[in-house]
Design a protein around this nucleic acid. Structure first.
Lengths: 106, 106
DNA sequence: TTGACAATTAGCATATTTGCTATATGTCTA
DNA sequence: TAGACATATAGCAAATATGCTAATTGTCAA
């Protein structure tokens, strides 16, 4: 499976898309996170699980797929894994999609 | 299922992505089509099936999904169904994806 | 070093996707 | 009208995706 296929598949799920969305504004959704500043460090897996009302292992797998696609990075800090968007990878993907499908500008 | 979900799912398959790709240059891949000019009218389903070496019903379903996503249009003409890209829908989708995920410019 | 908590991994059930063949429908021509 | 050919639909099998619970691993603090 190529990185591009991983990326395309990663976006083929509503929950994962929503994860990328809420991570654009961690302050808005995860101000309850006390272990670390959600804006500076990212959001930990169990808070994401709680937000989307899925089990923690389920969110863990979604995060794994988003990581494999390169769309988020996750850094372990003490007992938490803080997730944040990889803006460069998202931009790169959007540009690849447009170019590879020869999609014209608006 | 929303149109956006249909679109995201439609792209989550390598064959369907390739269909959109080859339809950018029908002259290159489908000059053998004699019933109608592949550039002006589009490419018929069975030639697409032959090109990708899948059965005709399988290609028919892929086309159906691409149609539901709005990415291609298919017009029946005599016994053929000519498929062509819907550039406006593809552009719209690419723009939506960028905006909806807050993806920055390159 | 034990207990609590976050995260991951394993294993399973269910749903969805994707391919096929067989069959039906549509369209034209001999 | 019978046939040939393009397409669509139905139905099935295999693969993949997605959710869960249970169990394991990692980290820290009492």
């Amino acid at each position: 499976m190529s990185i591009r296929e991983d990326q395309v598949k990663a976006l083929a799920n509503e929950t994962r898309i929503e994860v990328l969305r809420v991570l654009t504004d961690p302050a808005r959704y995860f101000s309850a996170q006390e272990s670390a500043d959600p804006v500076k460090f990212g959001v930990c897996v169990h808070l994401l699980a709680a937000h989307f009302e899925v089990s923690q292992p389920t969110m863990s797998r979604h995060i794994e797929l988003l990581k494999r696609a390169g769309f988020i990075q996750a850094k372990r800090q003490q007992k938490w894994t803080y997730c944040s968007r990889n803006e460069a990878a998202l931009t790169d993907y959007a540009n690849w999609l447009k170019a590879s499908l020869s999609i014209q500008d608006a």
